[in-house]
Design a protein around this nucleic acid. Structure first.
Lengths: 364, 364
DNA sequence: ACCTCTAGTGGAAACGTTTCCACTAGGATC
DNA sequence: GATCCTAGTGGAAACGTTTCCACTAGAGGT
């Protein structure tokens, strides 16, 4: 049943009774060929079940039609969605993604990048574990291959498909402040290594300052701690004054709710929580999750699109950041009545009323 | 800064003052070389920043060191985790996955498979959108490349890394029955096209039969309907007699809870729900999610491992199915007191007491 | 009748590797 | 001193493709 050997274009040419050059031209529609020859070659290819060997093709043409993609983890659906977007976009252009995950390991990051470059990818789409001072990024630049970043704020002249993390965080802060919260906290995962977390904290803090609030607490926890609700409960216990907590991502926000319940704090009556990413099930939970909704698929598509353009004309342009939306949810409510004599928090001047905005659209 | 041209092993040989054969032997440690020559070649490669071109190498050696992976979607973290497992395993063996998603589209399935084969992947790891009568599977078989399935029950002689869906579903049924439920339902996504859903329903139904219960209701909904809580609410309304609902996956189980709340049914007092997959956040929700816990990463690792073995010695062996665990959760409780004169449901003979087992481990 | 053009064709080189083979130069064995 | 081995080496052939180039033959222009 199966073929004795692999079938090459030479076999096709032989059967069709022509030279390989002609066969190649016919099968690629890349040059002149008589109607009769065309028919014969098509026929032969069909009969033999011929299909091109992408490797031979890539070697000769020096075009692998392949784009390397690197994300920290595929287990995180946010990156999965982004990859889905990347694939859709690339596929339409006749390219194929080579997808790798670094598992948040800086060394694997670099290693994977080298592997991808050895495969002669024509472009790279990268979300790094540790973008700053990343050896991987140096490798990428040295390669001369066009690079699109994803999720990261633009760094070092690399274009990125991202949302403005600082602006989103400011929006989160405003949502808290509007509701009378004045002791806020930011719960960060991978803070030290994540530029995104850092931008978010910066924006969050800035908005607090503008509103004359105290510096928001910066609480870092490790991935391992995040998996352990008791750890998070401890964190909450250690920060009893916080009434509004901004979590690094939606999963963490959910974990916070769980932890709060363990120590008898009610969400949102005692503690309001806002997440980040806008994962789908957020809507369905009770209480529903207040969060910043982003579109990871769109980020993937944009990164791929920019890259494709750059691969054609060599010019990589930074597009404006992608829009995000604040999604209201039941985890966010007015601050509890203060029991202690906290100093009065001046309201931000832009705040007109206490009515709750449902969705705020923005893209800067 | 960047290299004027790409550096090949010829350049290395020239600089080292030797033939390419020698350079190749040194750099691959694949043959004899004098200490001095070794040094010179290493030096030259280092100085030039040489790295192998995987394409040239693959062409000549007819070994791409690459494995094609196809999953229905990367946006689903279950598949993402599996891919992560695959990658870890392959990487350790010097292979690289080429990951594709079919987006649950049968045509893309086949198209992707052809693309992967054109890349001369040395093996395939596949989870199909529609396994039965799948053209993709025929393509895979015809290619002669070793194939590991993932998630699917073994089909057509292909080995698979999977959990025994029917057994898991029987366990789910027992958990309901133990608690006095006797009107059960199975809520399926992609039922017509998913062998997994079908196996689960079969097991679920079988166990109901064994216990002398009525046939469980089979409720199919589309992906689109699943996103719309009102649709699910309608389904619940249309099946008021059901007190125990087995959902196709955890996300769907969460959606069910939400829908139930909308029509005033309490989980678990009025309706018990059990999911499938065992996603991490299930623990953290309130009520916590009762579910069948599976290890997608382990499935990926096993699929990759079996494949690697088959790639070496040509023999693909079906390993026993991977273990699953029933995870108790607050969405599952005793059946509500019956209000109508339902006939008595005989208890399964294996049931000794009403005490709630916390975890049941099994692997068959 | 000559030249020029074009369509159609195939030979062969190249892409970057690995590996087979042939070759040399010593050292060991008889 | 002839023979055999071994380590070390490089030339060259392949892998499957595309594409440059050269060639033919007929058509169309003078």
């Amino acid at each position: 049943m199966s073929d004795k050997a692999t079938i090459t274009i030479k076999d096709v040419a032989r059967v069709a009774g022509c030279g390989v050059a002609t066969a190649s031209r016919v099968l690629n529609a890349s040059g002149p060929a008589s109607a009769e020859m065309t028919e014969r070659v098509r026929r032969a290819a069909e009969d033999l079940g011929f299909s091109f060997n992408a490797i031979g093709r890539a070697l000769q043409s020096r075009r692998s039609r392949t784009v390397g993609c690197l994300v920290p983890s595929l287990a995180n659906p946010v990156f999965g969605e982004a990859m889905q977007g990347v694939q859709d976009q690339l596929r339409a252009a006749g390219y194929q993604p080579l997808i790798c995950a670094s598992n948040y390991d800086e060394d694997i990051d670099e290693d994977m990048l080298r592997t991808l470059l050895a495969q002669k990818v024509e472009g790279l789409i990268i979300t790094m574990a540790v973008p700053a001072r990343s050896a991987a990024l140096k490798v990428a630049r040295a390669s001369g291959v066009p690079v699109s970043l994803m999720f990261h704020d633009p760094i070092d002249g690399f274009a990125s498909a991202y949302v403005d993390n600082a602006a989103a965080a400011r929006e989160v802060a405003r949502q808290f402040i509007v509701r009378g919260h004045h002791r806020l906290g930011f719960l960060a995962l991978h803070f030290a290594s994540s530029d995104r977390s850092q931008s978010r904290y910066a924006g969050f803090r800035d908005e607090c300052r503008v509103a004359g609030l105290a510096e928001p607490a910066l609480i870092e926890i490790s991935e391992r701690e995040a998996r352990c609700p008791d750890m998070i409960a401890n964190v909450l216990r250690a920060n009893p004054e916080i009434t509004g907590l901004f979590a690094s991502n939606d999963f963490l926000a959910i974990a916070v709710q769980n932890a709060a319940a363990r120590i008898g704090r009610r969400v949102p009556q005692d503690l309001s929580v806002i997440g980040f990413d806008g994962i789908d099930i957020g809507h369905l939970l009770s209480p529903s999750l207040a969060t910043i909704e982003t579109d990871a698929g769109a980020m993937g598509r944009q990164a791929a699109h920019s890259l494709l353009i750059a691969m054609q004309n060599g010019e990589m342009h930074q597009r404006p950041p992608l829009p995000f939306v604040f999604r209201a949810g039941a985890t966010l409510a007015a601050a509890p009545e203060k029991k202690d004599g906290d100093r009065d928090a001046p309201q931000s001047p832009s705040v007109h009323q206490a009515s709750v905005p449902t969705k705020t659209r923005t893209n800067s």
